[in-house]
Amino acid sequence: MLAFILRRLAQAALVMLTVGLIAFSLFRFVGDPVLFMLGQEATPEDRTRLTLLLGLDQPFYVQYAGFVARAVQGEFGISLRQVRPVSGMILERLPATLELALVAAVLALVAGIVMGVYTALRRNSWFSQALLALSLIGVSLPTFLIGILLILVFAVLLGWLPSFGRGETVDLGWWSTGFLTASGLKALILPSITLGLFQMTLIQRLVRTEMLEVLRTDYIKFARARGLSDRAVHFRHALKNTLVPVITITGLQLGAIIAFAIITETVFQWPGMGLLFIQSVQFADIPVMAAYLCLIALFFVVINLVVDLLYYAVDPRLRIDRAAAAH
């Protein structure tokens, strides 16, 4: 168990270092920062001074090491656009994105599993067929189009829900939450549906396929032969086995939800990290882009780690058992 965790941690560190390298390279490929900061008219002496000050005369790997050391402490420098520390800007936007992603993920997971199980158990009902057809549309429509359609129907035509923003938020320390106000909750509905729809249909299809597969297994036949109720067979035996592969996919999708929030946040002008990223791309605000990149990678890595551990907890076969080997 410990070896397993250590190995995964080492892998995670390697991934983060690689992503860090890419983020770091951004600074170098986009242009000469000295020129950028001092402008065309600076004297060569000024330039040399700044180059030395920024450590740009050092070899590449020394500069990279410095970048990593600062990044680990959460320092990504100063935003070129807003002239304030990047970490503060990201931290300020973090709650909006995480709350949106959380709601979208829960929605996708719960609705996806319920619909997946339903369509597997009632394979031939018309409602299952309708859900499947609908999910096909969900998979094939691009996110921004879904967002715009939802806005058109529920915000513009019906006027039930807001078309942009987070509504009112409440500050809990540095965390600003939209969960505690009615307008905050209402504002979450359309963006979270938009963001989670793709994953919901994905999970639904996955659960359905897995469940059908599991229902054909010998142990399910045997469970029926033992006289267990349908409920026990379906929701105890079949569902648990179905969820093993679903956990992995869902975990990876959670990372994707956070990453793809960029599009949804843009469509709904949601004040999260994704919107910040898009804005910084327009201004070539490299420090913000680098920080965003590293943070998203960190999410992916952490989620992967948690998924592996969950997998391990659910499936006893993965637990190495010396006692068993003896028998």
Binding site: Y219, H237, N241
Partner: peptide, 27 residues
């Protein structure tokens, strides 16, 4: 179905061919 379910296991037990796959691995 429900009446037959109560007969299965209670009055007629079953054993299948493959012991490797007859048991649910997660329980």
């Amino acid at each position: 179905y429900e009446q037959m379910r109560r007969i299965r296991g209670r009055r007629i037990g079953a054993i299948f061919q493959d012991p490797l796959t007859s048991l649910n691995p997660l329980f």
